[in-house]
C-alpha cells in the first residue's frame, strides 16, 4: 500500500540523488564490513550500512554483549578510522556537487 506518494517523477530522482548518489564503498580495515560513504566536506560524513555489514562489525558485536547493550547512537571507531584512511588515500572525493 502506498504511503507518502510523490506527484512528480522528478521527486523519485531527488530521492535517488539524496540517498544513493555518490556513495563510495569503503571496507573496514579490521572486519572488512562494507559501507557506503559520502563526504560533502571535511567534517561532514554520511554512512550507509547494510544488514550484512552490521552483522560483520566486531566492535558493534562487542558493544551488544555489554550489560546495557549497544546504544544506537554509538559509532564504530574502527570504521571511522577506516574512512579517514580512505580519505587520506584519496579514495573518497570530498566536496558537494551542485550545492549538496
Amino acid at each position: 500500500m502506498p504511503s507518502f506518494v510523490p506527484l512528480s517523477p522528478d521527486t523519485v530522482e531527488d530521492q535517488r540523488r539524496y540517498t544513493r548518489a555518490r556513495l563510495v564503498e569503503v571496507a573496514c580495515l579490521d572486519c572488512l564490513a562494507k559501507v557506503g560513504v559520502k563526504k560533502n566536506s571535511e567534517h561532514h560524513t554520511s554512512i550507509q550500512w547494510s544488514g550484512q555489514a552490521l552483522k560483520q562489525c566486531q566492535e558493534f558485536a562487542r558493544m551488544s554483549d555489554a550489560p546495557d547493550g549497544r546504544s544506537v547512537h554509538a559509532a564504530c571507531p574502527r570504521l571511522a578510522a577506516s574512512i579517514e584512511a580512505a580519505v587520506r588515500e584519496g579514495e573518497i572525493n570530498i566536496g558537494a556537487e551542485d550545492g549538496y
Binding site: N40, H44, T45, S46, I47, Q48, W49, L54
Partner: peptide, 9 residues
C-alpha cells in the same frame, strides 16, 4: 538499515 550522518556545522 543503519544510517549515520554528521552535519558540518
Amino acid at each position: 538499515d543503519r544510517f549515520e550522518f554528521e552535519v558540518d556545522t
